[in-house]
């Protein structure tokens, strides 16, 4: 199996604070890999530096065979690397449907000339995108809210929108920063199923930062554990539960209780 994402000896420092301190791991193409670790381990910083929001102090990040650590954020996304945020960041003043429409790249109406003087061509395209977006919204249970302003959605609905918007962008790989944060158990179940379906259906690779180990157990084939800015261990969750370092650093009693070693 080939890698879609390779993190190699990445360092990120904010002044004196070393948020990531020589971290190396890989994500196999077509898998859902979990990134877990105690608070302050550097997981969100890692997602930020993969996506381009945080710049590296040193090290390299390779995505889909291309070194991306020097690329600006939007160029990484153009290559098919799309992230979601720990706290939902919907376009509040736009409708749910528009939230999806806006993220699709390569629309002809994004050039000024086409936008103003060739509205027909662009409208035909948009109509097709509306159909596509509605199907996605339907899958995520947001179809009847499609013409609602995104700011009016509930917290859980915003999580669903965050994910459906990312799907609309047709990524090769999704970076999910705690997609289940603040979500009810019933919705966690649904979201988890959606992620699995996406992975199975279109082979979308994912890197999932998650604290909920039940979710990790259910949908992730591999787990990377980070602690104090380094990769502590890697393997399946079953392998990791017998890893002393991991148990001490993060899983603690929880691993025995939840996974029942």
């Amino acid at each position: 199996m080939s890698n879609i994402l390779a993190i190699s000896d990445v360092h990120v420092a904010f002044g004196g604070l070393k948020a990531i301190d020589g971290c190396t791991f890989e994500v196999e193409k077509g898998t859902i890999t979990a990134l877990i670790g105690p608070n302050g381990a550097g997981k969100s910083t890692m997602v930020g530096s993969i996506a381009g929001a945080v710049s590296l102090t040193s090290g390299s990040i390779t995505f889909d065979g291309q070194e991306i650590s020097h690329l600006p954020t939007y160029r990484r996304a153009q290559g098919g690397l799309i992230r979601t945020y720990q706290i939902s960041r919907e376009f509040g003043g736009m409708t749910v449907l528009e939230n999806l429409l806006v993220v699709r790249l390569g629309q002809s109406g994004e050039s000024l000339i086409n936008a103003v003087f060739r509205p027909k061509k662009s409208k035909t395209e948009t109509n097709a995108l509306v159909g596509e977006a509605n199907e996605i919204l339907n899958t995520f249970g947001l179809y009847r809210l499609r013409n609602e302003y995104a700011s009016n959605l509930s917290g859980g609905q915003k999580r669903l929108l965050e994910l459906s918007r990312a799907v609309m962008a047709k990524p090769k790989m999704l970076l999910l920063d705690e997609p289940m944060a603040g979500v009810t158990p019933a919705l966690i179940e649904i979201l988890g199923q959606h992620l699995l379906d996406l992975n199975k259906g279109s082979g979308m690779s994912m890197l999932l930062v998650e604290h909920n180990l039940e979710v990790v157990d259910k949908i992730c084939s591999r787990v990377v554990v980070m602690a104090t800015g380094k990769r502590l261990a890697e393997g399946t969750l079953a392998e990791l539960r017998s890893n002393r370092d991991v148990v001490e650093a993060y899983l603690g009693g929880e691993v025995h209780e939840r996974i029942g070693s």
């Binding site: 381009g52 954020t73 996304a77 960041r89 376009f91 003043g93 736009m94 962008a169």
Partner: peptide
């Protein structure tokens, strides 16, 4: 308009 709402996110979508 999406940039008006949240520039970083639009950036992160390419």
């Amino acid at each position: 308009r999406a940039i008006r709402e949240d520039q970083d996110v639009v950036d992160a979508f390419g």
